[in-house]
Design a protein around this nucleic acid. Sequence first.
RNA 1: GGUCUCGUAGCUCAAUUGGAUAGAGCAUCUGACUACGAAUCAGAAGGUUAAAGGUUCGACUCCUUUCGAGAUCACCA
Length: 620
Amino acid sequence: MKELRIENILVGHTIGAIKKLYEQSVSPNQITLQKTRPEFEGDITLLVFPLTKASKKSPEETANAIGNYLKENVSEVTVYNVVKGFLNLVIDDSYWTNYLLNSESRPESFRDQNSELKEETVMVEFSSPNTNKPLHLGHIRNNLLGASISEILKAARKKVIRVNLVNDRGIHICKSMLAWQKWGNGETPSSNGMKGDHLVGKYYVEFDKHFKSQVSSLKSQGTADEEAEKNAPLIKEVQEMLRKWEAGDKEIIDLWKMMNGWVYYGFAITYKELGVEFEKTYYESETYLLGKKIVDEGLSKGVFFKKDDGSVWIDLTKDGLDEKLILRSDGTSVYITQDLGTLMQRLQDFKDDKINKLIYVVGNEQEYHFKVLFLITKKLIQQNVAGFGSLSFGESGERGGGASLFHLSYGMVDLPSGKMKSREGTVVDADELMDEMINTARETTKALGKTDGMNEAEAEKLYHNIGLGALKYFILKVDPKKRMLFDPKESIDFNGNTGPFIQYTYARIQSVLRKAEEAKLKGTSEKSKIEIHKKEKEVIKLLHDFPSVIKEAAEAYSPAYIANYVYELAKEYNQFYHEFQILKAEKEAEKNFRIMLSAKTAEVLKSSLKLLGITAPERM
RNA sequence: GGUCUCGUAGCUCAAUUGGAUAGAGCAUCUGACUACGAAUCAGAAGGUUAAAGGUUCGACUCCUUUCGAGAUCACCA
C-alpha cells in the first residue's frame, strides 16, 4: 500500500493555490521544498521566490497568501510563518507518528514506495582487474563503488546484472610470464606459501627491474632513449612471447593458464574478503576476436578505414576528436577493439533481459577512451554493424537524458606522495590494507572489553565486520567524482564520522531492544496519547527521508548520499538516546513509543549499511 | 601546447544541484559513566569558499580572467 507523502501533497496544493489565487498554472518542478533550518520554526519550507513571477506580488505577500491557503486546505499543515521569501510550514505531529507506525524500512520495500521510479534492467561493470598484479587501493574504490551502486539501484527498482571484465591477455601479462620463466626457478604459490596474485605481481616488478637495467646499459653505450626502450632484448623477447600466445603455442598457453590460475585463486580470496560478487565474469581473451569481426564488418560498411600499412582507423575529426586506431598494422587488437567485442557478447548473453543501461565503473583517467568508445558505438548503430542497429543503445556518456551507455567516472585515490604506481611499489595493497583494518578492529575491540561472551569464531567475524565497515565507509562517503586522499601513516578512524560509529549505534539499539523484550515491552504505540519531543521528531523526519535519499543516490550514482544520510541519522539518534530515557521513561506510552522509534531507526541503519556493503553487528 | 577536472577550518570531507548566518569528523582545549552500552554525548576555538570581476531578489554552486594542482591527448590497458 502506498502512503501519500507530505511533499507530494504540498506540491499538489501549492499548484492549486497559485491557480486559485493568481489564476496562473505552474509545473511541479517550479515548486521547491526544503527542510526548515533548525533556527526557524517549522518542518518543511517552501521557497516562494520562483513563484513571484506568477503572483506578481512581493515574496512576503505571496508567501502569506500561499501559507494561508495551505493551512486551510491541507489538514497536515497546522501553522506557518514567513521569513523573507521563505514559507515555513509546521506539519502536524500525527503525520510523523503515523509514518513511524506504518513505514517499512527494508530496502526492498522502497521498490514500492518509490513507485515513480522506472523499472529497468541495468548492467554494471566494475572491478576489471589485470592478471599481472594483485589488487590495490584503487581497485578497492572501484569494487566498493560498483558493489554499492548495484545495491542502491536494486533498491531503486532496477534489475541489476553485475559483471566483471578480466584483462587476462596482452603484453603486460607476458611480462610476468617471461620473468617467471627466467628467474622463477619453478616457484609456485604452494611451494612458497605466497598468494597467487602476489606471486605473479612479484615477477611483473622483476621484469621491470631487469628491463630498466638493460635500457640504461644501452643508453650508456650511446643509444638514444626511445631506441633503447624498443631494442632492449627483454622487450623483444616479450613481444615474441605475445606472438606465440596469439598463435596458440602450447607451451606458452599452458604457462599462461597456470599463472592466471594462480591469480584467479588469489582474486577469489580478495573478493570474498571484500564481499564482492558478480553474476558473470568476462575475459578479454574470449572477446577480443569478436571485436576483430566487428572491425571487419565496420570496414566493409565504411565506418572504419585502412591505412597503407594495414592498420585500421576511425575518423572522429568531425566530432571534435582525432583519428583513432582500431587495429594494429600487424592485425592484433587494441583495448577498444576488445571493448566492442565484449559489448556485443554481453548483449547476446543477456538478450532476454532487455538491458536498458550499461554502466562502466572505470576511473576518470579513461574518460577520453569512453568518449571514443561511445562515439564508435553510435556510428556502428547507424550503419547497423554486427546487429547493433537493432539495439536501443545510444552514444551518450552524459548523465540523464536516457543515455544507454554510461561511464561512471570516479576520481583516483592519491597518496600524500601522489599517484599510486604498481611498478614503483608505491601502492597500498588491498589484502594488506584489509588485514590491517581487521587487526585494528581486533585490538580496539579487545581494549574496550567488548568480547565478553563471544566465542572465537564470533569474535573474528566481528573484527572483520568492523574493520571492513571502517574501510568501506571511509571510501564510500566521498563523492565518487572527486579524487580522494589516503594517508597510510594515519590509520582510518573508528570514532566520529565513521563506519564503526554507525555500527555501534545499531548494536547499542539492539542491546536496548533485547532488554525491552526481556521486560516484555511490545514497542507498539497509541500515537495520539503522547506528546513527541523535538528531538524525537527530528529522528522520525530523517527516517521519513530514507526513500527519497535512495532515489537521489540512484540517480546520482552516489553511495556518498547514503553514507552522509546514515551518519546524520545515527548522530541524531545518539543525541536522542542521551537526552531521553527509553526503558525507564515515566509513562508506559512513552516507553513503547521510544522502543518503536529505536527499532525503526535500527532497521534503517541496517538497511543503509547494507546499501554500502557494510554489516550491522548485533553487538560490538 | 589542445581538451577536461579540481581548489571550502591545521587535516579529511559535507553543503538537498542557484536559497536563509557555509556544516561535520579528526586533531586541540573544557565538561558528562554507581546510567537503557562512553566506539557515546555536551561545549569552546577554528573560514575573505585560491584571487579579481560579472550575471540576479540571492552565488561555494553559473560566466570571464588570473594563479595553483591533477588527468588525458599511444600501433599501452
